[in-house]
């Protein structure tokens, strides 16, 4: 750092006898600390880059049309990801169908209607708690409730059960995102609406919600992309790895991309590991597309606000 001349200033007090700040030593520590913080950040990003490059190198050669359109097979070269890919898209829809309205509704309730009563406070603590519950526990819940108790409705180990489970898993995330988006809407807008004689709900529906909607949508898409990458709850619910047909909503036997990847990783033959890498690339493409949509929405939303 700067070369310091300790005698740059003339002395007027006796302070120098009391203080001996070893400036060069302090600056050395400063430098070490600064460099360490950069090293930590760059390392995290380099690891991310390595991870992506490693997977790309392994998987790209395997990625072709045959891989996308084929059913599982005992031979790695003929195997494909059609069934898991369709399963993942199914899950996306079913999860969104349940999680979006329920999550947004609960968020609206907490932010706009609940006030500060006991129910609201319990709900709040509960949501905070649920967010930290491991996803595999949700799998156990889905297995016990949706697969077994609701068997006549869900058809057991089906896309329906899995979608419901994932919906519960991301519900807290959507509720929190909804609340944040609503909170970002200035309260003057609410007051303006209500001063015109509108009820709270009319104000929220006509003015607040349209303002908050892009933010809610962004949060929901990010939550859904998390659900799509989940593996553990699907295994517990009973996703299968050998599904030689296109899965249906309530039909027995479904798969999903992470399940298929997990299965291939676990095979001893190296050719299947290549398939796993190719499957990861497909999964990542789906996720990147979803994230890009979310970021696009967020940026457009922020641009409009200016």
């Amino acid at each position: 750092m700067t070369a310091t001349d300790p005698n740059a200033f003339s002395q007027s007090s006796s302070a120098e006898q009391h203080f001996s700040s070893d400036l060069s030593g302090r600056y050395r520590l400063d430098n070490i600390f600064r460099i360490a913080s950069w090293v930590a950040t760059v390392t995290a990003l380099v690891v991310l880059a390595f991870l992506l490059i490693d997977v790309l190198i392994d998987g790209i050669p395997r990625l072709d049309w045959q891989f996308i359109t084929s059913f599982p097979s005992r031979s790695a070269e003929r195997a494909g990801i059609l069934a898991p890919l369709v399963g993942t898209i199914w899950l996306l829809f079913v999860t969104a169908l349940f999680a979006f309205p329920i999550g947004v509704g609960a968020g609206i309730f907490l932010e706009e209607f609940a006030g500060d009563n006991l129910f609201a406070r319990i709900l709040e603590v509960n949501i905070g708690n649920l967010a930290a519950v491991p996803s595999i526990i949700y799998g156990l819940l889905g297995l016990a409730v949706f697969v077994r108790v609701f068997l006549p409705i869900t058809g057991g180990r089906t896309v329906f059960s899995a979608g419901l489970t994932l919906a519960l898993l991301i519900l807290p995330v959507i509720i929190v995102a909804t609340r944040e988006a609503l909170r970002a809407v200035p309260s003057s807008l609410r007051q303006a609406g209500m001063a015109l004689g509108a009820t709270r709900w009319q104000t929220v529906r006509e003015h607040v919600l349209p303002q908050a909607f892009p933010g809610i949508l962004t949060g929901t898409i990010l939550a859904l992309s998390r659900a799509i990458g989940e593996t553990a709850p699907l295994i517990v619910i009973g996703a299968q790895t050998f599904v030689p047909f296109v899965p249906s909503f309530r039909g027995t036997g479904f798969s999903a991309l992470p399940i298929q990847i997990f299965n291939w990783v676990g095979r001893p033959q190296a050719e299947f590991h290549v398939n796993a890498a190719a499957g990861i690339i497909v999964l990542m493409i789906v996720l990147v597309a979803m994230n890009a949509t979310a970021i696009y929405l967020r940026n457009r939303f922020q641009a409009e606000k200016m």
């Binding site: 700067t2 740059a8 200033f9 003339s10 007027s12 400036l23």
Partner: peptide
């Protein structure tokens, strides 16, 4: 200048200056 020394001179250290 602070007591005749240019505050933004290279030899002046901001940390030490703020101590004073």
């Amino acid at each position: 200048q602070y007591r005749g020394v240019d505050l933004y001179d290279k030899s002046v250290d901001a940390t030490e200056l703020r101590r004073r």
